[in-house]
């Protein structure tokens, strides 16, 4: 009888002892967490991408509760997450201006010239070290796809040697913006249909020699814009997206077609 009783008593007794002491310890070492933080953390996408500027979703949730970050701080989650967060916090969230990453270069294989043939590692950063990359234009997309590698959302692809962002898939996490050695990827409002897709600060003559679709600094767009939405600096036209009404006049007038537009969409809107 004791052969069965002793093991049961010993094991059960030890288990009980440890259980009680752990229960006591959990009271002593209890960490007080704000239930709001956990509730918000549940709602956030959990990608820990850092696009909000905080270290991971946990950090963002804490900042939201403390009021340091707005309810719409998570660009990945967009409107739906912002609304859920706002309802947890009991605040109003306005319309969010959704932004998407856009590659400001259209100099693909047929339009931009190369100064040498690059046969090294397929990585824009390493190519950039070698005399600023193989493109004659020192501002253009190198097309090695480093941005494609860092995109977690399959939103950016290399087409004809130039990176193109899929507007619908992009969540504005800024991973590609950080990694691009040429700094040609920028956040542009989702609504904007008319974008100057060139970053070249070279004078017109140099641009023309290197690429058939670059901004040559002719200022035709600046003169023709009815909304006065263009600014001009360093031989490069820039659109103020807040003023732009997507009328498409500049797209028609631009001699090199450096001003990109989804023409069909714009003309549909005009109708």
């Amino acid at each position: 009888m004791t052969a069965i009783l002793y093991p049961i008593v010993v094991l059960g007794g030890l288990g009980l002892l440890f259980g009680v002491s752990l229960g006591f310890a959990s009271k002593v070492f209890a960490v007080e967490t704000n239930p709001l933080v956990e509730a918000i953390r549940e709602v956030l996408p959990g990608a820990n991408c850092g696009a909000c500027g905080y270290p991971g979703c946990d950090g963002c949730a804490v900042a939201m509760v403390e009021g340091k970050a707005p309810a719409s701080a998570c660009s990945v989650g967009g409107q739906s997450v912002a609304e859920k967060v706002a309802s947890i916090l009991g605040v109003e969230v306005g319309e969010i201006n959704r932004q998407v990453a856009t590659v400001l270069c259209q100099g693909d294989c047929s339009k931009a010239k190369n100064k040498y043939k690059f046969a090294g590692l397929r990585d824009c950063r390493s190519q950039n070290i070698l005399a600023g990359g193989s493109k004659s234009c020192s501002y253009g997309c190198l097309g090695c796809g480093t941005c494609v590698d860092v995109c977690d959302y399959d939103a950016i692809h290399i087409v004809e040697g130039v990176a193109i962002v899929d507007k619908e898939k992009c969540v504005a996490c800024k991973a590609c913006i950080d990694v691009c050695p040429k700094n040609i990827i920028e956040l542009v409002p989702y609504e904007s249909e008319v974008i100057v897709k060139c970053k070249s600060n070279d004078p017109g003559k140099v641009v023309r020699a290197n690429c058939s679709i670059g901004c040559i600094g002719c200022k035709i767009c600046v003169k023709n814009c009815p909304e006065d939405a263009f600014s001009f600096e360093n031989f490069l036209a820039k659109i103020n997206y807040e003023k732009c009404t997507n009328c498409g006049i500049c797209v028609e007038k631009c001699p090199t077609k450096a001003i990109f537009s989804d023409i069909e969409k714009v003309s549909l809107k005009a109708q």
Binding site: L22, A25, S26, F29, A30, V31
Partner: peptide, 10 residues
Amino acid sequence: VQLVEMFLKK
């Protein structure tokens, strides 16, 4: 280990 975990979390 449970004890260490609680202690570290705190």
